[in-house]
Amino acid sequence: MNATVLQVGVLLFTLGLGMVVLRGQLLAMLLGIELMVGAVNVILTYHANLFGDPKALAAVVLIICVAAAEAVLGLCLILKLHHGGIPAETESLAELRD
């Protein structure tokens, strides 16, 4: 049974990764990251029940909290970009190169 959960988790994770990598808008990428973290939480919660170990659940809560911090930070950056008049697109952020 835990193989299927792993596969579901990995599927969700790759979906999130796809969103981050393929989409051009920063907001969508932010959502992708949240999706990836969500996939990890799915796997962890399942295995926490499997091993009956409450520490993993505490870990899930911690991970959600960290993900929230990341989200806040990402939104703050996007807002700053918006105030600066720069479109939140990956194409516009390409000045620095070799």
Binding site: N2, L6, G9, V10, F13, G16, L17, V20, L26, M29, I33, M36, V37, A39, V40, I43, L44, H47, A56, A59, I63, V66, E70, L73, G74, L77
Partner: peptide, 20 residues
């Protein structure tokens, strides 16, 4: 930020596998 976020999520996935 985005690179770091993706990397930490990769770490989390690894953590999950490790725990699994």
């Amino acid at each position: 930020f985005f690179a770091g976020a993706v990397a930490s999520s990769l770490f989390l996935l690894g953590l999950a596998f490790h725990y699994a």
